[in-house]
């Protein structure tokens, strides 16, 4: 498959949040302000690329040769959990400013289903290593795009006159629905 096709498909057509429903918790949780949304995007991008790289290699070099693919779920989630810890420790030592920016979001990422979802999807789609990395990067960009758009709208929403019963979560979900509807316009792009 061509890389351009993978990228456009992962960012717009099959957007990870708005059409695959992965990573909804951070999408709703940290989207109240634009700045936290950008921080979360950075952390997710970082972990998603590393996690996909490692899980892909473990799948091809360990699980498949030994014919134990049924251990995939357990292995992948443990790798991701360990990796998040590792990234946190390394970042703290190597780049304190980056750690300051991403630190609070890192522990939340272990239970971000987008990370595990992408790791499993690359195996299901039978990507090679390069395609997997491109796919992970594009998915992370798609996640960031949706999150930043949504956070921008929610900041404006604070000023809007929303009916009393719809305030808070309900209106946020409906806005997300409209955003998803807009993204459906990309459907025939790739």
């Amino acid at each position: 498959m061509e890389y351009a096709l993978i990228i456009i498909s992962a960012i717009f057509v099959n957007n990870v949040v708005l059409s695959q429903f992965l990573g909804i918790c951070p999408f709703l949780g940290v989207s109240k302000k634009l700045s936290t949304g950008i921080g979360m995007t950075g952390a997710v991008t970082f972990v998603m690329i590393i996690a996909t790289l490692v899980t892909w290699m473990v799948q091809k070099l360990v699980l498949e040769p030994f014919n134990v693919q049924f251990l995939q779920t357990i292995t992948f989630i443990l790798i991701i959990a360990a990796l998040v810890q590792l990234v946190e420790i390394v970042l703290k030592k190597v780049s304190p400013p980056l750690y300051q920016a991403l630190g609070v979001f890192l522990p939340l990422i272990t239970t971000n289903c987008a990370i595990l979802g992408v790791a499993i999807m690359t195996i299901q789609k039978d990507f090679n290593l390069m395609e997997s990395v491109v796919f992970a990067t594009a998915t992370a960009i798609g996640f960031g795009l949706a999150l930043v758009l949504f956070a921008g709208i929610r900041e404006q929403l604070d000023l809007a006159d929303v009916p009393k019963g719809m305030k808070g979560t309900p209106i946020a979900l409906i806005v997300a629905g409209l955003l998803a509807l807009a993204f459906m316009g990309f459907a025939n792009l790739a």
């Binding site: 719809m166 309900p170 979900l173 459906m184």
Partner: peptide, 22 residues
Amino acid sequence: LVFVLAPGAFIALGYMIAIIDK
């Protein structure tokens, strides 16, 4: 048809949470 597709999920859940809150 939209309710079976992705946007409908968000919109339906939004209204349901509002109703249950009420």
